[in-house]
Nucleic acid binder design. Structure first.
Length: 878
RNA sequence: GCCCGGGUGGCGAAAUGGCAGACGCAACAGACUUAAAAUCUGUUUCCCUAAAGGGAGUGCGGGUUCGACUCCCGCCCCGGGCACCA
């Protein structure tokens, strides 16, 4: 029978709240080591918590509770990334201020998180929408502004007419996928110069304990490439190009300008004017996405102009083509079709000459060869390997004054303004006389106005333009009339620095007290989804470095160790081939199995098999599945099926609600199940049966202490001393669980506890001290049950102040161990021996082993291997 | 196309180069029960065999090693990211 989890969990949650058990003192004992354990804070959506949230949050909670028991001062806070588009859309629809729904949603999230028993210090809770928080977000922006890292410009932006909002390049896909329209439009925008930090953002990745894949994604995003800029002369004009392969200059047979390149107008010859004009118009109409989507087929137009290759004086044609991007490098390239895939395709299509200048290794075609080799057809440079040639030619270019070495980054400046209401207002004023003037720091925060209509104005101005009174201000410089900035900041702003505010959330003189900052930073463990691999983590690192340069923080990087939890998928679904399904329709119906067609890319990919039990649809239960010859079939049928799990989604109907799980099995079961499913970082399917499994385990733990029938203490409990076997089991568990927590291998830690409980069930007498210690190692995982049992075992206070149990190696020593004996790598027999027995003694016993002897018969012993405490291998031949 | 992950029983998974499949789920059998649920005990990678026992086996093909899920080389498949960045 299940233990009374609801009652137990309510009791201890109330206890923790009343006693502020997990409060981190303002002035912690500085002689202890610190540990800052952080979750990526959630956007409090109206949907409430989903099962993905508790995964990461439980992982950090275990870590926080464990570190406290190990004597660390732990900072483990939670808050809300509460600006966001859904609340704004709700406001537009209802005319209500988004504040209301936002704080309502926060209350729901807070209630749900408290229900899961996380050991957050709730006194440090922050929300990015709080006025006091906005104040410091704006303050940081002012520092950026004063450092010249924020500038204003007419920028082509991604405008979504149905969202009435500007999206960052990175966000376009997400919203398109949700069915919104996105088009390009030029608008006045605020931009942050993240490019100025590109090199540091790249270099400092090396020292971080992050998943290699995430670091690699950031490196690719920053996209550093080293090469040279080269000037090509063209009667009166100069076209500058960027290339990473200056060693292929002799192979440049034409040039390409981006359609937007300003020189296009100047150089186009009258005969080509019409064609060029038409091509540019067509290119302008395409979005970035369309340009790349249609990338398979190269397009372009000859301008009629020619330029001179500086290395050999040859005259080469100048084309325009949209495969050259105006936003990268100089917006112009020299084309070396022999050694660049794109140029090669283009040259083939338009019949342009292809000249080899790199000799590839033997047996490789030089056409389209893009890797390093040896120079040919390159005049005096012939015979040079690529790397050396690059250095020489760069020096040559610099000497002649026609080029120079150059580093380029793919990273673009960060488009920082949105035409929305529900975001931080920019602390900026527009003064007719003085231009853009920052709001004085003592006047922060600039609060949002009260409106009832949150739509953009009919002439396309942001919603803040509707606040006619709010707009009016006085210029702090000249005292003349000024107008407030009507753009707001993107959602990223608040999440760029929240980890700093937790350290000192109530400070009204600084965003964080420098002394406290120095103590707690950097974040020791940061856990969240991989979807923030690039954007949030890059933006936060950028702001942190700016703050570091301002002297506001003491570390160059904010997050020392990063872990991404893997996504939790829906329950496993079984699929069958549609034709086979149809052929077995009758027999399936008999078994209560029905099929749902699944379409992928317009084709029928498969049929999902479902049963209809208890009135609602469910997956195929395991008792209807059977394996034959390594394949999976529906039981007693000739229908082959395959299992697959998919993302949880409303449309698929496979969403699991944490509230339901807590109600039925309890928070401890949910926590424990999510940690037991598999490695934290891995993608894994949900299984309701798995939840029941861990729930049964917790019930068994409960029954070790409490008699199920009476509710009294179990009669097996004793005040006596534990036996040797009991101590060995316990200490093996302590060692395994502690080590696994350090490595965040929670699934195997839980399995170690299960092994202990399986053994403990067989014991007739259970010393209280033994179970008390076990409860301590269980407590980071299932804190409510642990507190309850700790209390029932006779400890009046919460276990949260207890130390993590020490492993006593003495108890783990075995008198005798079993050793497998292999002959030629196959286990043939087993011997029992003292663990510290000498090699000779081991071999003697092994050779005498009755199961081993027949396998050695008639053979000569070539080699004997003994791996202490592991195994014996006897190598025989003949 | 490029860059990361990953591929082990019916399912989730475990294994410093040293007994592959711990632990859990499901399934099967048994105990308890009037019965069911719950609980407890046992079996459960596949193939051959009545059994004792034997053989095969960690996506595929090679290699290194006394010994490979683990290391090396070459492929295949799945998931994610990037994608005309010169």
């Amino acid at each position: 029978m299940a233990y009374p989890h609801s009652e137990i969990e309510a009791r201890w949650q109330q206890y923790w709240e009343q006693h502020k058990t997990f409060r981190t003192p303002e002035e912690p004992d500085r002689s202890r080591p610190k540990c800052y354990i952080l979750d990526m804070f959630p956007y409090p959506s109206g949907q409430g918590l989903h099962v993905g949230h508790p995964e990461g949050y439980t992982a950090t909670d275990i870590q926080a509770r464990y570190r406290r028991m190990k004597g660390f001062n732990v900072l483990h806070p939670m808050g809300w990334d509460s600006f966001g588009l859904p609340a704004e859309q709700y406001a537009i629809k209802t005319g209500e201020h988004p504040r209301g729904i936002t704080y309502q949603n926060i209350d729901t999230f807070r209630r749900q998180l408290k229900m899961l028993g996380f050991s957050y210090d709730w006194d440090r809770e922050v929300a990015t929408t709080d006025d006091e928080y906005v104040r410091w977000t704006q303050w940081i922006f002012l520092q950026l502004f004063k450092k010249g890292l924020a500038y204003e410009g007419e920028m082509p932006v991604n405008w979504s007419p149905d969202l009435c909002a500007v999206l960052a390049n990175e966000e376009v896909e997400e919203w398109r996928a949700k069915g919104h329209k996105v088009e390009r439009r030029a608008m006045r925008q605020w931009v942050l110069k993240i490019t100025e930090y590109a090199e540091r953002l790249l270099a400092d990745l090396d020292g971080l304990d992050w998943p290699e894949s995430i670091k690699e994604m950031q490196r690719n995003w920053i996209g550093k490439s080293e090469g040279a800029e080269v000037d090509f002369a063209m009667d009166g004009e100069t076209i500058r190009v960027f290339t990473t392969r200056p060693d292929t200059l002799f192979g440049a047979t034409y040039m390409v300008l981006a359609p937007e390149h300003p020189l296009v107008d100047k150089v186009t010859t009258p005969g080509q004017r019409e064609a060029v004009k038409a091509y540019r118009a067509a290119a302008a109409a395409k979005s970035d996405l369309e340009r790349t989507e249609l990338a398979k087929e190269k397009t372009g137009v000859f301008t009629g102009a020619h330029a001179v290759n500086p290395v050999n004086g040859e005259s080469i044609p100048v084309w325009i083509a949209d495969y050259v991007l105006w936003g990268y490098g100089t917006g112009a390239i020299m084309a070396v079709p022999a050694h660049d895939t794109r140029d090669y395709e283009f040259a083939q299509k338009f019949g342009l000459p292809i000249v080899q200048v790199v000799r590839p290794p033997e047996g490789t075609d030089w056409r389209g060869y893009v890797d390093d080799g040896v120079a040919v057809n390159s005049g005096e440079f012939d015979g040079l390997p690529t790397a050396e040639f690059k250095k020489k030619i760069t020096a040559w270019l610099e000497e002649k004054g026609v080029g120079e070495g150059k580093v380029n980054y793919k990273l673009r400046d960060w488009l920082f303004s949105r035409q929305r209401f529900w975001g931080e207002p920019f602390p900026l004023l527009h003064c007719e006389k003085c231009g853009v003037v920052p709001v004085p720091e003592e006047d922060l925060p600039v609060r949002l106005p009260e409106l009832t209509d949150f739509r953009p104005t009919p002439d396309g101005q942001p919603p803040l333009a509707r606040a006619t009174e709010w707009l009016k201000a006085t210029c702090p410089v000249c005292g003349g009339p000024a107008f407030r900035e009507t753009n707001t900041m993107p959602q990223w702003a608040g999440s760029c620095w929240y980890y700093l505010r937790y350290i000192d959330p109530k400070n009204d003189r600084a965003l964080v007290d420098p002394d406290k900052e120095k103590y707690w930073m950097p974040v020791d463990l940061y856990v969240g989804g991989a979807e923030h691999a690039v954007l949030h983590l890059l933006y936060a690192r950028f702001w942190h470095k700016v703050l570091f340069d301002c002297g506001a923080v003491s570390t160059p990087e904010p997050f020392r160790k990063l872990v991404n939890q893997g996504m939790i998928l829906g329950e496993m679904e079984y699929h069958a081939d549609p034709a086979a399904f149809a052929a077995h329709a009758a027999a399936l119906k008999e078994r209560g199995i029905e099929g749902i067609e699944e379409r992928k890319d317009g084709d029928v990919a498969s049929i999902i098999l479902r049963t209809r039990r208890d009135g609602h649809g469910a997956g195929l239960p395991d008792d209807l599945i059977e394996k034959r010859q390594g394949k999976v079939f529906v039981k007693d049928m000739d229908l082959e099926i395959t299992g697959r799990a998919e993302k949880m989604s409303k449309s698929r109907g496979n969403v699991i609600n944490p509230d339901d799980i807590v109600k039925e099995y309890g928070a401890d079961s949910l926590r424990l199940y999510e940690m037991f499913m598999g490695p934290l970082t891995q993608v894994k399917p949900w299984s309701m049966k798995g939840v029941e499994g861990v729930s049964r385990f917790l019930s068994r733990v409960y029954r070790l202490v409490v008699d199920d029938e009476t509710g009294d203490l179990s009669p097996k409990l004793s005040g006596g001393e534990p036996t040797k076997d009991q101590l060995r089991s316990l200490h093996a568990a302590i060692r395994k669980v502690g080590g696994d927590i350090e490595r965040m291998d929670y699934n195997t830690a839980i399995s170690a506890m299960m092994i202990f409980v399986n053994e403990a069930q067989a014991w007739d007498a259970l010393p209280r001290s033994l179970l008390s210690t076990f409860v301590l190692i269980l407590s980071p995982f299932a804190p409510h049950l642990a507190e309850e049992l700790w209390n029932r075992l006779g400890h009046p206070d919460s276990l949260s102040g207890e130390a993590w149990p020490e492993v006593n190696e003495e108890y783990l020593k075995e008198d005798e161990i079993e050793l497998p004996v292999q002959v030629n790598g196959r286990v043939r027999g087993r011997i029992r021996i003292a663990p510290d027995a000498g090699e000779e003694a081991v071999f003697e016993l092994a050779l005498a082993c009755p199961e081993v002897i027949p396998h050695l018969e008639g053979k000569s012993l070539k080699k004997r291997i003994y791996i202490p405490k592991r195994m014996v291998n006897l190598v025989a031949a003949g």
